[in-house]
Design a protein around this nucleic acid. Sequence first.
DNA 1: GTTTAACGCGCAAACGTTTGCACGTCAAAG
DNA 2: CTTTGACGTGCAAACGTTTGCGCGTTAAAC
Lengths: 337, 337
Amino acid sequence: MVTIKDIARAVGVSPSTVTRALAGSSRISAATVRRVKECAASLGYVADSSARAMQSGKSTLVGLLMPDIQNNFYATMARTAAEHCRRRGFQLVLSVTEDDPQAEEEQIRALVSARCAGTLIVPTANTHPTSCKLLSSVPTVQLVRRSDALHAKGFGIDDHKALESACGYLLDLGHRKIGLLAGNDDLHTARQRKAGFIDAFRSRGIEPDLTLILQGSPRAQHGRTAATDLLSRPVAPSALIAAGAALTEGMLDATSEHFGTASPTVSLLGFGDNPAFRWWQGGGLSTVSLPLGEITSAACEQLFERIGGKAEGATDDRFTLFETGLVLRRSTQRHAA
Amino acid sequence: MVTIKDIARAVGVSPSTVTRALAGSSRISAATVRRVKECAASLGYVADSSARAMQSGKSTLVGLLMPDIQNNFYATMARTAAEHCRRRGFQLVLSVTEDDPQAEEEQIRALVSARCAGTLIVPTANTHPTSCKLLSSVPTVQLVRRSDALHAKGFGIDDHKALESACGYLLDLGHRKIGLLAGNDDLHTARQRKAGFIDAFRSRGIEPDLTLILQGSPRAQHGRTAATDLLSRPVAPSALIAAGAALTEGMLDATSEHFGTASPTVSLLGFGDNPAFRWWQGGGLSTVSLPLGEITSAACEQLFERIGGKAEGATDDRFTLFETGLVLRRSTQRHAA
DNA sequence: GTTTAACGCGCAAACGTTTGCACGTCAAAG
DNA sequence: CTTTGACGTGCAAACGTTTGCGCGTTAAAC
């Protein structure tokens, strides 16, 4: 590896002059700057960011922790985050936690060890206290999910409203027996979504059938089994809502399987903007659409502002909510009277 | 930040003793080891990996460069790579190149600068010579795509065979006018796939209609416009093959649009194992299935072997090919006579 | 009782970069 | 002709960790 000293020797100046010349900044003669830069280029010099990080105490690494990456939901966030990092000259360290607090903690420890500049995190359902302590030394922004334990600003969606309007729409179509596939109550988002679902009923003076609410892990597997369960009941619901992106995939699998080549007689409402939802059964799947790009962009802006800025004392812990939409396709039909 | 010196002072030993105690290895009394570890834990010590990297010349970072992350194809690779890195205690640096050689080079420079342990790369169509030079100092393994310029071992699929059997299947169903959506000839994979497509015809003594082969950027956008073009021709092809994962998405979009709610009268064959392909139009999309998990795993194994091993002189540049499959669903039908 | 070896630990250098301070030179101002 | 200042550069310390070497102590071997 060619270092700054090699350049110094070749050009015939001191290492400090080389740094300053390469940094472009300080008072170094234009001639020297040119000679140094030429020499650096010809020797193929690449600065050692480890040394730089040790010197400055901060690296140009930004952590992105999330439970999954295969799901389009999270992939969209990763893409946006990668884009922002690239534009600002940071490197994105991707950590897939798979909703395991243990793995999460290890990854956080590694990020702290690397003296990363900042962290974007979709916390697991039960983030370990150690993880929170570790993250307290690093600029951190929460994404989508909210964990009060780590006192950090976050950006997400208005989960309650999202499911209230989703469920309200189905109710207005005449559906009464509506199944809900949801995450378990450990997740703040899951609680909110469930509450929104229920409130949609109550605000219309209807009492929801709570046995149609199936909570579990927010993964495709649960969506699949829960949907299969609901569809196989003697009195099956006339509509299903998946309150999560992965749950939606499970729901679609289960529905395909249950109806085979016949066209499904149940109304389906999904979650997220997976482009593949457009291809569902000819008419497309109706979904709750999420401004994930905007959310992630906002989170990145916030993060880089905090990274760049001089740690202003009062860190804003609040969680900023974005409005969701409802994309209506053919999977949601008026309830047959 | 609490350093090794803080621990040394607290315990009353020298910094070197602390390192050795924490490393567990060298000849340090059990009592001291215990006291040091306890102290480290209580002070919340986290080793600075930058310092470690500078000392050793290598970091625990592994680069993953790929054109996209939203596409299920690449997301699967990212997930697998992340899993392998996690197991071995490495951090995954995700770089999304968007098929831009310029961006690719910048990211590679950053990785070299970080003295990364190794790199997994899906090269862009025209990887810059500078990028190749930079990568020559780092253990590198190519994924899926092959660039001869960077002399590195790689793992991918047998592209020729994949399309030969895909196209052959449609020919055997009686199709003759088959449209192909392909990447441009800059990509080795695209050339191979096109050749496989053509050879399927020739080996059956049929001359393919080359005007039905539409090459372009291997992104969804091209798949969409190309498919729309083919479907709108006075004499439309009776079957379409997308020779790429993103191209497949574009093809499906275009087909949905072209046929509206009517059921498509064209046979469709996609590329990759996007779970969403199962939901296509009720019957599911037939696809070329790829052992992406295996490929990525093999690449990771190879990479970590090279990282761990003492650089054995003769680096094996060969490209290992994996066999693809054909998953048949309802989107491919016998040609109506 | 002396030699030898093993053991537990400290010293100091090294990794590559940045940066505060000081030094020398030269030109402009007095 | 002396003083002042600006300018270009070098010196050396610092960031946190690892590691080769050496030193002193104690126990084992003779």
